[in-house]
């Protein structure tokens, strides 16, 4: 009997230790994946940058990797397009998103708020290729007609598509922030004779500003990382950005070069370098976001 019990206890100890190790392994694997991705992007991104030269690569205004005699590898057009496109999407998406969040948090009756929230959830679930398809068939022709352009596949079309795509995250993060504003602030304002709208915009919104800022940063991250939808509406030409020009983003440069560049060519390695630049952008945004949340938690 004792022997059996001892055996059972040993088996139990054994399985306990084993499961602990299994879970540890899972955790370590998760870290390993991040390391794998970072290492791959950095290692494969560096050679082309070294060959082209960092400054020529980052600030070169011409991308002509297939030119017979003098191929050029400047990604400034992509960087600027990503920056302008993101800024444009934020400029359009944030006001609409913020106002909708305010509507949901303060003005809407409960039922209506539930309906609008469902709409927001659905918008966030729609695949990006579907946004791209509708953008390509509805928005692009509309832009062409309205502005009398030879082609509607422009930075403007991309900005509009991106601004719709970042709306859901801006709305839900801002709404959470607005809902978290202590009731006492709003009461104090009303007791001073402020109207409800004055209270929402002059007290609640400033009190929720760090959360709203986080929503904006999140939106920036989304917009800068989107590839397929804007691939379908931006025309995908390596121009310097202009609102009515066909353009290529950092993400779409990666996606479009991936299918054409021959393995081992400088063009191929330059594509990895573009990915590295995008990765660094995203990491920067991540760091900003993390610092923000940490500050908020402490402050």
């Amino acid at each position: 009997m004792d022997a059996l019990e001892a055996k059972y206890a040993a088996a139990k100890r054994y399985s306990e230790t084993a499961m602990g190790l299994v879970f540890l392994l899972c955790g370590v694997l998760a870290v390993a994946f991040v390391l794998l991705i970072s290492a791959y992007l950095i290692l494969s991104g560096l050679p082309a940058i070294r060959e082209v030269g960092l400054l020529d690569f980052l600030f070169g205004p011409v991308w002509a990797p297939t030119h017979k005699t003098e191929p050029q590898f400047g990604i400034l057009p992509f960087i600027l397009t990503s920056v302008y496109g993101t800024a444009g999407a934020v400029a359009v998406g944030v006001p609409v998103g913020f106002l909708t969040a305010m509507f949901l948090s303060k003005l809407a009756p409960r039922r209506l708020a539930a309906v609008v929230r469902t709409a927001v959830d659905l918008l966030s679930g729609i695949p990006s290729v579907v946004y791209g398809l509708v953008g390509m068939t509805v928005l692009v022709p509309a832009v062409r007609r309205v502005f009398r352009l030879p082609s509607g596949a422009t930075l403007l079309a991309a900005i509009l598509v991106l601004s719709v795509m970042i709306l859901p995250s801006i709305i839900s993060v801002s709404e959470t922030a607005l809902n978290a504003v202590p009731r006492e602030y709003e009461e104090a304002s009303l007791a001073l004779g402020a109207t409800e709208t004055e209270t929402w915009f002059r007290v609640s919104a400033p009190a929720a500003s760090s959360g709203i800022a986080a929503a904006v940063v999140l939106g920036i991250g989304r917009a800068i990382g989107e590839a397929m939808a804007i691939m379908m509406v931006a025309g995908n030409v390596a121009n310097m950005p202009g609102l009515f020009k066909s353009v290529r983003f950092l993400t779409t440069a990666i996606a479009s070069e991936m299918s054409y560049a021959g393995v081992g060519s400088l063009q191929r390695s330059a594509l990895y370098s573009i990915a590295l630049v995008l990765f660094l952008f995203i990491m920067l945004i991540n760091v900003i976001l993390n610092l923000w949340f940490k500050n908020k938690r402490e402050g």
Binding site: L41, Y272, L278, N286
Partner: peptide
């Protein structure tokens, strides 16, 4: 931190890697 970082990476970079 690794998990948070992974969430922010655009899917095109996952595709590339």
């Amino acid at each position: 931190f690794a998990a948070e970082t992974l969430t922010g990476i655009p899917s095109i970079l996952y595709g590339l890697v």
